[in-house]
């Protein structure tokens, strides 16, 4: 049988062949998941877990939880970050390339087509009406996410965090302060606030 001959072949070629096969598999899996996953980073991570943990057993459950936390707390899109982490695990640099390409090709293709037709598309009165209605829906979706996230911040019972949230909102919305400046200042404030105050004899947190 062919498989038998393959297994007895050069071990180096076998490993390289397996790696290449895994990378190809990773690429097609991510292409598929990315094409059909609506609704942001967390949804795509759920699908990735189902595929790579439950189905292919490439990654164990605890590892996936760690990778999710890393993907979520790093800068950039969660889906791309998760693809990089899983790609690294499965096939090193080649795995990263395969997973990331699989993740970004579907949205790039879809948005390219939409962008090319956008002018004609948006000037059609029916499409404009639908888009107008959907905009109201998007505003509701974003503010609903804000309500959930904001509740978590308030529940943390940290005066510092609540004040920081209010101050950043006022600075961004009413005074139009640059978003990146605000993020850098908030990171700085977070670092300063988390330094334990020595000499006062009490620890925060």
């Amino acid at each position: 049988m062919r498989t038998g001959a393959e297994e007895e072949g050069d071990p180096f070629l076998k490993i390289v062949g397996e790696r290449a096969r895994n990378c190809l598999r990773l690429f097609t899996c991510m292409l598929y998941i990315s094409s059909f996953t609506f609704g942001g980073g967390f949804v795509i991570i759920t699908f990735m877990k189902r595929k790579f943990v439950d189905e292919l057993h490439w990654i164990d459950e605890q590892e996936m939880l760690d990778l999710t936390a890393l993907a979520q707390s790093s800068p950039g899109a969660i889906a791309v970050n998760a693809a990089i982490l899983v790609g690294y695990r499965v096939g090193g640099a080649a795995g990263i390339a395969a997973a990331v390409l699989g993740t970004i090709l579907p949205p790039m293709a879809i948005l390219s087509v939409i962008s090319l037709f956008y002018a004609a598309f948006a000037s059609n009165p029916y499409v404009a009406l639908v888009l107008k209605g959907m905009q109201a829906g998007v505003a509701a979706i974003i503010l609903s996410v804000v309500a959930d996230l904001g509740t978590n911040v308030v529940r943390s019972r940290s005066v510092f965090r609540v004040l920081l949230m209010v101050a950043v909102f006022i600075a961004a919305f009413f005074f139009g302060v640059n978003v990146i400046v605000l993020i850098l200042l908030a990171a700085l404030a977070g670092v300063l606030a988390s330094i334990p105050r020595h000499g006062k004899g009490r620890e925060k947190r």
Partner: peptide, 13 residues
């Protein structure tokens, strides 16, 4: 980065 969360919430808001 967890310290950044309140600011990110405010920016999204």
């Amino acid at each position: 980065l967890s310290g950044l969360r309140p600011a990110v919430v405010a920016l999204i808001a």
